[in-house]
């Protein structure tokens, strides 16, 4: 065996390959095959990678926080919600709009005000089961989903049905005497804030690790 290995010298010249050059270790045939493959791979990558990046780009694109004026602070009370329509995606027509339910912070049900984004409560209408639009029923002080019977209480916590976490909320702030609705955020069953998640993703216990923060999450300004 050892002898055989010795036979295979790295130099083409020693291996009696016709047209070999002194000191050459790679035959011209191997060089050509290798470079044709390499160029083929480069050409494929030159077409494939941009196309892939083009399709995947939006996943990594951070969104800009948008704040939308919904009226004066006096328009809202703390014992019931007023529906407001805001735009969450521009350029999409009706589809980019969504309804939010807005009320004043109510210390009795909400506890102390957490920060400057907490003077008003703006509840998203996206059901946290699979995303159908919920409606607020004033008589029962409940949010009700038409799809699979999800029910939420006055602060948006789940009181029945399949939803996995309380209704999402929007940041609110008062600027120059106007109430503005900002980006959406998610909450767990103790109403702790998380970056916005999609419906169906629980945030209690292991859920917050199974469904990580997305790259598209906008930064508050």
């Amino acid at each position: 065996m050892a002898d055989r290995r010795k036979e295979k010298s790295p130099y083409t010249e020693d291996r009696n390959i016709p047209g070999a050059f002194e000191g050459e270790t790679v035959t011209r045939r191997r060089l050509m095959v290798g470079s044709v493959h390499a160029f083929g791979a480069m050409a494929t990558a030159a077409i494939g990678l941009p196309a892939l990046g083009f399709a995947l780009g939006p996943v990594f694109e951070r969104q800009r926080a948008r704040w939308e004026d919904v009226g004066t602070p006096e328009d809202f009370v703390d014992f019931t919600y007023r529906p407001k329509v805001i735009t969450v995606e521009s350029g999409a027509g009706e589809v980019g709009k969504t309804t939010v339910y807005v009320r004043k912070h109510n210390e009795e049900v909400d506890g102390p005000v957490k920060d400057s984004y907490d003077d008003f409560v703006a509840i998203s209408t996206r059901c946290m089961h699979l995303g159908c639009p919920v409606r607020y029923i004033d008589a029962s002080q409940r949010f009700v989903c038409p799809c699979h019977g999800g029910v939420y209480d006055f602060v948006g916590k789940v009181s029945g049905g399949p939803p996995v976490r309380p209704l999402d909320r929007f940041y609110t702030r008062v600027r120059r005497g106007r109430l503005e609705i900002g980006p959406r955020y998610s909450v767990n069953s103790e109403l702790r804030r998380f970056s916005p998640r999609d419906a169906g993703q629980p945030l209690d216990g292991i859920g917050q690790y199974l469904y990580p923060r997305r790259f598209t999450t906008p930064e508050l300004d």
Partner: peptide
């Protein structure tokens, strides 16, 4: 989900 929607919300694209 972001890939399918081309962003965090159902949008123009």
């Amino acid at each position: 989900a972001d890939f399918l929607r081309a962003g965090p919300e159902f949008g123009a694209t």
